[in-house]
Structure formats: C-alpha cells, structure tokens
C-alpha cells in the first residue's frame, strides 16, 4: 500500500513538472530521438503542437488527455466532443488561439446568466498543464487522434522516465 501511494505521489509531481521538464530537456530530446525530424520534435514542445504516430501520442499530449479527462470532461464531455452542458473544445481549438483558450481556462467565462465557466487559476494541476491541454485539443481537432485513452509513443516515454 505504501509503495503504491508513494509511487502515485511521484507520478503526480512528475506530471506537474512535465511541461517544465520537457522544455528544459528539449535539446537533449532532439539529439536522442533520431527517427523523428528535428522540426517535428521541436514542435511538440510548443503549446498546441503534438505528435500522433499509429494512434500513440507524445507525453505532453498524453498529459493533456489526462488533464482534460480529470478536469474538463465533467462539463465538456468525453474526448473533447462537447455535451448538452458545454461546447466541444476540439472545435474551439480549431478557431481559438492558445492565448484565448489559456485566458478562458485561467479567468473563466460568463456567457449569459446560467452559462458560466469557472476559473481554474487556483488549480495547479490545470494551470501547469494548459499547454498540454491545448496540444490534446489540437490533436483531437486535427482528426489524427481518435477517441479514448491514447498510449504514449514508447521511445518518448522512455525519454521522459530517463
């Protein structure tokens, strides 16, 4: 039990740190992952960029999936498809810039009385993953990433753990 608990904490901390970690190690990634074009690898570090290969995704996009599912899905529906309560965010990601999406997540939104989105500014697990959420939404919007829980591209996963 204790092992399980400490492991889960470890992953939690790791996931919060993913964005920072992946930026600081970007150049190392470029050198180590030989089978991808440098531009593609570089792109995966920017909010909204993603890699989808055989239905698998880069770790940031995967983290975006997890964050979406934990925090956004309750209103916006599974797989960023929208619901009777709140709009599809994969559609929103087609039209909205990262800055717009990020400011809505941080600041919330009141469209009309009865249609309100809360601010997530004080929720570190959302705020630290805004870029990853955007990557996940962009991946869904592109049609390259299907529904459900994606797997992480193995060589990139190893890179993260290393």
């Amino acid at each position: 039990m204790l092992n399980k608990k400490s492991r889960s904490k470890h992953i939690g901390i790791l996931s919060i740190a993913v964005l920072a970690l992946s930026i600081t190690t970007a150049s190392a990634d470029n050198q180590n992952v030989n089978n991808q074009a440098p531009s593609e690898q570089q792109a995966s570090q920017e909010p909204g960029s993603f890699i989808v290969k055989d239905g698998k995704v880069d770790p940031n996009t995967y983290q975006g999936y997890l964050t979406y599912t934990r925090h956004c899905q309750a209103c916006h529906g599974p797989d960023a498809l929208g619901s009777s309560f709140a709009p599809s965010l994969s559609k929103a990601a087609e039209r909205r810039s990262f800055a717009e999406i990020a400011s809505t997540i941080a600041g919330g939104l009141q469209i009309q009385p009865g249609r309100v989105m809360p601010s997530f500014a004080e929720d570190p697990s959302v705020i630290s993953n805004i870029g990853n959420i955007y990557s996940y939404l962009k991946a869904r919007a592109s049609g390259e990433l299907g529904r459900g829980r994606p797997k992480v591209i193995e060589e990139m996963l190893n890179e993260e753990e290393g």
């Binding site: 309750a74 529906g77 599974p78 929208g82 619901s83 309560f85 599809s88 299907g146």
Partner: peptide, 24 residues
C-alpha cells in the same frame, strides 16, 4: 435534455469492440 445523461451521451460512446479512433 441535459443532466449527466446529456453530458455523457451527447457525443455518443465508443464501441469497445472497435479499434481506437474507429468511427463509432
């Protein structure tokens, strides 16, 4: 329409028998 049903089912569910990303 609405409620949890509207949130969960608006976009439909995935067929577990189909591959990831298949048209549901």
């Amino acid at each position: 329409v609405g409620g949890w049903a509207g949130i969960g089912l608006a976009a439909g569910l995935e067929n577990p028998e189909e591959g990831l990303g298949a048209v549901s």
